[in-house]
Amino acid sequence: MGLFLQLFTDGVVIGCVYALVALGFVVILSTTGIWHFAHAAVYSAAAYWVYFATVERGMPLVLAALLSLPFAACLGLLIDVVAYRPLRRRNAAPTTVMIVSIAVMTFLENGIAILFGTDNKSLGTVFVAHGYSVGPVVITTWSIITLVATAVLFVTLILFQQRTEMGAAMRAVGNNADMARVVGINVGRIYLVAFALGSALVAPAAVLVSIHSGISPTMGLEVLLTAVAAVIVGGVGSIPGVLLGGLLIGVAGGVGVWQIPSQWQQAIAFAILFLFIIFRPTGFFGGKVKSAAV
């Protein structure tokens, strides 16, 4: 039973990481309809910013981590202005936009590799290497920070979406951009806000994973694929759904290896995705899958 509880707890923590990565992705997707795969590169870039600021320039980690939010937000804005806005003007097909987002991701990852090299980097040992025992379960400082960061960011974002004018405007644009324009909402501005906010939201996950597992130019794609699975499982566009999808994939991967060999761990996430696509394509909380548009 002790092992089961440990695997469950670890699954919850890694599920939170997937949910955090997916959170910014879903903010952009639900508002703009863009499957923004370049989000993976924004995630990598945020991690490299922290590496550059702390290891190469000696900035305190907390300050570098805080500055990673505006850094990621600016990068997200830049991608929208340079890559997606010209496509919107040309009424480009959703597939074209998705291909461009993959191209932007590749471009940025290669840029990072040119600047910092392709070898792995480390932020050094940030936390003391021991855990705290809670009954039969051991939990680490890193895990606690991940759980707290996830809770704070999800609650804040849900409140933002439900209680603020900007949140309502973003939902309106996500539901029907033309109708939103008719009632006087500046859709272009809302898109910018979505990219800035969604990109900033990926920075905490990037910092946490960098501390945990180190940094490499392609680190974003490795985790984004699982995060996108969490988005689909949770229901495309749903914030609580993303959290539930991330947790389900994390816990299933963790607890799954209790009884089956661990080499199948990654397959579990995609098996869940497959089952959802077949039996519940709308995910936990999703409505009809929204067709992508720009």
Binding site: L7, V17, M219, G254, S262, Q265
Partner: peptide, 19 residues
């Protein structure tokens, strides 16, 4: 315990090893 080549977390494998 085997892990995937692009894994970022090994907590499940390590928990089984501890047990």
């Amino acid at each position: 315990e085997e892990h995937a080549p692009d894994a970022i977390d090994f907590s499940a494998q390590v928990a089984k090893i501890k047990a």
